[in-house]
């Protein structure tokens, strides 16, 4: 089932923000998208060992896209000037930062991109003051080959991180729309959807997925409910990596009560805000509410006394959609 119209709007919104920026995610063999829970597939599609009932520090939605290249090179997504570079030390006595070899580049219209997982030697050489062309050495051109070597920081070999910040609007951008080569024809997979009643000491929890498999009816007290959804999207067919869904919508009796998306994440002094949740970003992840993975906190809505029809829609960035309907009787 397709729902292209809202995505055209999202694309246009993004195109408006991007303005003159010529930014393209280079063609790669695989990727893990913006919003995907960090560390959930840290080792080539293999999850970090964790027990979802306990908190694992650092598992928050990612603000970059992780790109897996066919070889150890990667094309610079846009032209600009390098203003910050970091390298990995390769020695146990020197602390290296998790992004490994990284370049921060300033682009027109106050966009800043960060490419990480780069080979430290290339970072050193491309930004060294002892280069003969000092003034030009800080410039980077779209399509320039960047090398990953054996991988650096938290990125394995052939893996790179790319993130784009819109400084004017203080937003970390979802760059998935800037990869026109992607053909995603599969719908997101909904793994878990749970309603948690808020404002009570007791955790009153309703499992929409389980209900949907059986009687498709929930009987619950009236009140405010938070919705936690675990859904995954395979962007590249037969990929070992999955991505976060693009947006999650809830309609109660035909009226939209939740419309949360990963189109961008707002940055502020308190941190990063995903899916409309207040910062810090860990507030966007519900721990222990899902059977096998982490769930996104997609929003809250009020269920008043009476019979209701609830429809949950999960979309990927290409407009592929998965829906689920449940009847609710609130008392």
């Amino acid at each position: 089932m397709k729902g292209k119209y809202p995505f055209l709007i999202s694309y246009l919104w993004l195109a408006t923000l991007l303005g003159a920026l010529d930014f393209k995610i280079p063609e790669v063999i695989d990727l893990s998208g913006f919003g995907t829970v960090l560390g959930d597939q840290a080792k080539q599609g293999v999850s970090l060992e964790y027990d979802v009932r306990e908190r694992c520090y650092g598992m928050i939605p990612r603000s970059d896209v992780q790109l897996i290249s066919l070889d150890t090179t990667f094309e610079a997504p846009s032209s600009g000037s390098i203003f910050y570079s970091q390298v990995e030390a390769d020695l146990p006595t020197v602390f290296s930062f998790p992004l490994g070899g990284a370049l921060a580049v300033i682009h027109p219209d106050r966009f800043v991109s960060i490419t990480s997982g780069l080979d430290p030697i290339q970072v050193m050489k491309s930004t060294s003051r002892s280069s003969k062309e000092v003034q030009n050495s800080f410039a980077i051109k779209k399509g320039d080959k960047l090398t990953g070597g054996d991988g650096s920081g938290v990125y394995p070999s052939k893996n790179f991180g790319v993130r784009l910040f819109d400084a004017k609007n203080e937003l970390w951008m979802n760059t998935i729309f800037l990869a026109p080569w992607i053909r995603d024809n599969t719908s997101p997979i909904m793994r878990s959807a749970k309603l948690i009643m808020t404002g009570t000491d007791k955790k009153v929890l309703f499992d929409l997925m389980e209900t949907n498999k059986k009687e498709k009816l929930i009987t619950c007290p009236q009140g405010n409910y938070s919705l936690f959804v675990d859904a995954r999207d395979i962007i590249i067919t037969s990929s070992r990596y999955y991505s976060a869904p693009y947006c999650i919508k809830v309609m109660l009796d035909g009226e939209t009560v939740i419309d949360a998306s990963f189109i961008a994440a707002r940055a502020s002094g308190e941190g990063i805000s995903f899916l409309g949740n207040p910062p810090p970003s860990r507030g966007s992840i519900g721990e222990g509410y899902s059977g096998e993975g982490y769930s996104y906190h997609v929003g809250q809505f009020l269920i008043l006394r009476g019979k209701h029809d609830l429809m949950l829609q999960v979309n990927d960035f290409a407009g592929n959609q998965t829906t689920m309907r449940t009847s609710i009787t609130a008392y």
Partner: peptide, 11 residues
């Protein structure tokens, strides 16, 4: 201190 893998948080 733990420096988060995305380099944007500490614990």
């Amino acid at each position: 201190v733990l420096l988060r893998a995305d380099q944007m948080g500490i614990a």
